[in-house]
Design a protein around this nucleic acid. Sequence first.
DNA 1: CAGAATCCCAGCCGATACTG
DNA 2: CAGTATCGGCTGGGATTCTG
Lengths: 142, 142
Amino acid sequence: MAAMKKERKGDAYSASCPARLVLDQIGDKWTVLILGVLVKQPTRFNELKRRLQGVSQKMLGQTLKKLERNGLVTRRAFATVPVTVEYAITPLGQTLAVSVEALRRWAEDNIREVTRAQASFDARPVASLQVNASSSDAGRGQ
Amino acid sequence: MAAMKKERKGDAYSASCPARLVLDQIGDKWTVLILGVLVKQPTRFNELKRRLQGVSQKMLGQTLKKLERNGLVTRRAFATVPVTVEYAITPLGQTLAVSVEALRRWAEDNIREVTRAQASFDARPVASLQVNASSSDAGRGQ
DNA sequence: CAGAATCCCAGCCGATACTG
DNA sequence: CAGTATCGGCTGGGATTCTG
């Protein structure tokens, strides 16, 4: 019981690092957006679906369940005529949302510079790549 | 494999939000770990591979190239006998690393609470679901 | 040593259909 | 309204092989 899990060599880094936990949670396509809505106010399922244009029921439900399981959002069901369910962010979820917000700010502050770097990268000659190619091919780098 | 730029109406939310940019960059399996190594000191390819136990050459090279393209790391090649290549984090990359570090701290600070939430979630009765009856479950009301 | 190219599987995610 | 279940495409990513 007191024994700690010794990690396998292959997955060691990932599994042992708590950072994995966060990235597995927010790394997907919708979590951050959902959090972004819920941090403002509690929201019902379909309302959420409406706000996150493009999300499927499956992914919305799946992501919400994951968030709920991790204690980041709560689910409250009301026994109204057509069932009503409201999702709300938890205090724990709010603290996460803050860190995520920092990331979003970073993106907004630096998107210009990143875009510039990309353009610069894409524009360069790709030196030291096949010089005597079989066919005359300028091979545009990815 | 080829990177195609294609606008789709379904991805509008994602594409328009700069937050997507960050998550697309750090949401993968290795970026954060690579950044974690490079933020301490410049590192060669195989040294990097050694530190990130479990990464494949493909993913390491791919991820490094993406980081380089986004201006987060630099690549310097030395014309030594067996070629030597050193990767280093850029100032821009360092600012990102700071935000990522915040996320990592969040994870470390809250992993206990998340784990507890998960256990609590997994232990609850799940009303109106068929019982598989493999072993008696003490339904803890929540 | 550094990296590109290929094969292939697991999982994410969307579209659709069904339930309560 | 609020989900769940299933099928299928796409892609992330690991193992392997080849080059300079």
